[in-house]
Write a protein that binds this DNA or RNA. Structure first.
Lengths: 151, 151
DNA sequence: CTGATTGCAAAAATTTTGCAAGCCT
DNA sequence: AGGCTTGCAAAATTTTTGCAATCAG
C-alpha cells in the first residue's frame, strides 16, 4: 500500500483541533495522549489516510501507541461524526475529516486524489435533501476521470 | 454484516449487461460463468454490496463459485471501470456500478443509504472539472446526515 | 489445442477482542 | 479512588496467492 501519497502540509490550525477536543469532552470521553495523537494526525496532515498510515503518523507523536488504539479511536471519531471513511481506488478504508464538505477529483489511471475547495452543489444539495426530509450534516463529492497528466 | 439490505429486484435489462460483456470482450478477457454471475449480481440486484454479499448472491447463480474468484472479478471490473468501491458507515468496501453518477443520502444514525436520481450538480461539476484539466467519467455524491426516520 | 481462468486451501494482511495495567478526571 | 482507556498479544475476519484442473475461444 502506498504509504505517503501527499506531502502537502497544512499548518496546525489549533482552532479546529480544540473544537474536536471540545466535542470529545462534551460526549463524555476522556482526553488521552493516544486520542490526541490520532486527532492531531487527522487534523494537521494531509487529506486522507488509511488506518496503517494513521498508526504510523501517530507513532511519531506518541511512540508507544498501539494499532488497536488507533482503530478504536478511528471508530470513536467516526461515530462522533468527526471523521468519515471514504472510498479509494482499491478497497482499503481511507479517513477524512467529516466536517463540511469534501470534493475530490479522483484519477482512474494514477489514482491520485485532487482536492478542490469550491463547493459546486451546496445549495442544490441542501434543497434536494430537505425535499426528502433529510437533515444534511456534511457531504462528499467525488468526481472520477482522468487527471491532466494521465490524459 | 447485514447481508441483504434491499430486495428490490430490477429486471435483467439485458442491454446494459451486454454492454458490460462487450467491454470485457473488447478488453480481451474471456466470458466465463463466474464472471457472468458476478456481473449479473451487480447488474440486477440492489445498489451497493460488499464482497461477501456478492459472493453469496453469485453462489445462487453459480453454486460452485469460489470467494477468490469473486474478489478477482471485482478487481477486474474495477480496473475496467465497470464498478467502483465506495464508502459506507463502517470501513467495509461496497461496490456500485461505475457508469454515470451515483447520489446517496447516507444516514449517520441508522446507516441507511437512500439513492436519489436527480443529479443536482452535473453541469457545475463538469465545468469545474474542466477548469482543472480533468476529464470527467463519472461521479459520486454522498450527502450525510439524518434520515427522516432518525431525526 | 493453449493459455486464461477457476476453485480450493493455505498464506497474508487487516481488524477486533480479552485483559491487566495505567491514566484522566 | 474509580472507571474509562491503553497496549499487547491472540483470535477472528477479510483478502490475496499458489497451483493443478478446467474452460473459453
Amino acid at each position: 500500500m502506498n504509504a505517503n501519497r501527499s506531502s502537502q502540509y497544512v499548518a496546525p490550525h489549533s482552532g479546529a483541533q480544540n473544537n474536536y477536543i471540545q466535542r470529545l469532552k462534551e460526549a463524555g470521553y476522556k482526553i488521552t495522549p493516544a486520542r490526541l495523537a490520532v486527532l492531531q494526525v487527522i487534523e494537521n496532515q494531509l487529506g486522507h489516510l488509511n488506518p496503517a498510515q494513521v498508526l504510523q503518523a501517530a507513532k511519531a507523536l506518541n511512540p508507544q501507541i498501539g494499532r488497536a488504539t488507533v482503530y478504536r479511536a478511528l471508530e470513536l471519531f467516526t461515530v462522533l461524526g468527526l471523521i468519515r471513511p471514504i472510498s479509494c481506488g482499491d478497497g482499503a478504508p481511507l479517513y477524512i475529516r467529516a466536517e463540511g464538505g469534501h470534493h475530490h477529483l479522483v484519477c482512474n489511471s494514477c489514482n491520485a486524489i485532487i482536492d478542490f475547495d469550491e463547493c459546486v452543489a451546496e445549495p442544490l444539495m441542501q434543497q434536494l435533501a430537505e425535499r426528502k426530509g433529510f437533515q444534511v450534516q456534511s457531504h462528499l463529492l467525488e468526481i472520477y476521470g482522468l487527471c491532466a497528466a494521465c490524459r
